[in-house]
Protein backbone atom coordinates (compact mmCIF):
# COMPACT_ATOMS: atom_id res chain seq x y z
CA UNK A 1 0.00 0.00 0.00
CA UNK A 2 1.42 3.36 -0.97
CA UNK A 3 1.92 6.23 1.38
CA UNK A 4 -0.59 8.20 -0.71
CA UNK A 5 -3.31 5.61 -0.18
CA UNK A 6 -2.51 5.41 3.50
CA UNK A 7 -2.50 9.19 3.71
CA UNK A 8 -5.93 9.37 2.11
CA UNK A 9 -7.27 6.70 4.44
CA UNK A 10 -5.78 8.37 7.48
CA UNK A 11 -7.46 11.57 6.28
CA UNK A 12 -10.80 9.76 6.40
CA UNK A 13 -10.09 8.47 9.87
CA UNK A 14 -9.14 11.95 11.05
CA UNK A 15 -12.44 13.27 9.72
CA UNK A 16 -14.15 10.50 11.63
CA UNK A 17 -12.31 11.46 14.82
CA UNK A 18 -13.24 15.11 14.39
CA UNK A 19 -16.81 14.36 13.41
CA UNK A 20 -18.63 17.57 12.85
CA UNK A 21 -15.51 19.66 12.79
CA UNK A 22 -15.29 21.72 9.60
CA UNK A 23 -12.19 20.62 7.75
CA UNK A 24 -13.15 22.33 4.50
CA UNK A 25 -10.48 24.97 4.91
CA UNK A 26 -7.80 22.52 5.95
CA UNK A 27 -6.85 19.96 3.31
CA UNK A 28 -5.17 17.02 4.96
CA UNK A 29 -1.70 16.55 3.51
CA UNK A 30 1.40 14.94 4.84
CA UNK A 31 2.41 18.38 6.04
CA UNK A 32 -0.72 18.97 8.10
CA UNK A 33 0.11 19.43 11.77
CA UNK A 34 -2.10 17.60 14.24
CA UNK A 35 -1.71 20.40 16.73
CA UNK A 36 -1.51 23.63 14.76
CA UNK A 37 -3.72 22.74 11.79
CA UNK A 38 -6.17 20.22 13.13
CA UNK A 39 -6.22 21.44 16.75
CA UNK A 40 -6.00 17.79 17.77
CA UNK A 41 -6.22 17.14 21.44
CA UNK A 42 -4.16 14.29 22.72
CA UNK A 43 -7.37 12.40 23.44
CA UNK A 44 -8.19 12.68 19.74
CA UNK A 45 -4.95 10.89 19.07
CA UNK A 46 -6.06 8.09 21.39
CA UNK A 47 -9.24 7.71 19.40
CA UNK A 48 -7.32 7.88 16.14
CA UNK A 49 -5.07 5.14 17.51
CA UNK A 50 -8.02 2.81 18.06
CA UNK A 51 -9.37 3.57 14.58
CA UNK A 52 -5.99 2.83 13.07
CA UNK A 53 -5.80 -0.49 14.90
CA UNK A 54 -9.33 -1.34 13.72
CA UNK A 55 -8.46 -0.42 10.14
CA UNK A 56 -4.98 -1.90 9.83
CA UNK A 57 -4.83 -4.48 12.61
CA UNK A 58 -3.22 -4.48 15.99
CA UNK A 59 0.23 -4.23 14.44
CA UNK A 60 -0.39 -0.49 14.22
CA UNK A 61 0.35 0.62 17.74
CA UNK A 62 0.02 4.38 17.93
CA UNK A 63 0.57 4.34 21.67
CA UNK A 64 3.83 2.52 21.21
CA UNK A 65 4.81 4.81 18.36
CA UNK A 66 4.16 7.94 20.39
CA UNK A 67 5.51 6.72 23.70
CA UNK A 68 8.95 6.78 22.13
CA UNK A 69 8.54 10.51 21.49
CA UNK A 70 8.90 13.49 23.74
CA UNK A 71 6.03 15.75 24.57
CA UNK A 72 7.18 18.45 22.16
CA UNK A 73 7.62 15.88 19.42
CA UNK A 74 4.10 14.74 19.93
CA UNK A 75 2.87 18.31 19.79
CA UNK A 76 4.62 18.92 16.49
CA UNK A 77 3.49 15.63 14.98
CA UNK A 78 2.36 15.83 11.33
CA UNK A 79 -0.01 13.59 9.43
CA UNK A 80 2.88 12.55 7.18
CA UNK A 81 4.82 11.22 10.18
CA UNK A 82 1.93 8.98 11.04
CA UNK A 83 1.33 7.89 7.45
CA UNK A 84 5.01 7.02 7.18
CA UNK A 85 4.84 4.94 10.35
CA UNK A 86 1.73 3.11 9.19
CA UNK A 87 3.18 2.43 5.74
CA UNK A 88 6.38 1.10 7.24
CA UNK A 89 4.55 -1.16 9.64
CA UNK A 90 2.33 -2.51 6.88
CA UNK A 91 5.36 -3.28 4.72
CA UNK A 92 7.01 -5.17 7.55
CA UNK A 93 3.90 -7.08 8.39
Amino acid sequence: MTTETVLAEIGDLIREVLDGYDLGAVPITSDTSFDADLAFESIDLVVLGTLLAERYGSGIDLAGFLSARTLSEIITLRVGDLAGYVTARLEHA
Binding site: S42, I43, L45, V46, D61, G64, L66, S67, I74
Partner: peptide, 13 residues
Protein backbone atom coordinates in the same frame (compact mmCIF):
# COMPACT_ATOMS: atom_id res chain seq x y z
CA UNK B 1 -6.32 16.02 31.52
CA UNK B 2 -7.40 12.90 29.65
CA UNK B 3 -6.41 9.27 29.46
CA UNK B 4 -4.01 10.33 26.72
CA UNK B 5 -1.52 11.30 29.40
CA UNK B 6 -1.11 7.58 30.04
CA UNK B 7 -1.83 6.33 26.59
CA UNK B 8 1.26 7.94 25.15
CA UNK B 9 3.48 7.34 28.15
CA UNK B 10 3.32 4.22 30.26
CA UNK B 11 0.08 2.45 29.28
CA UNK B 12 1.56 0.26 26.55
CA UNK B 13 4.47 -0.77 28.76
Amino acid sequence: DTMASYYFTIAAA
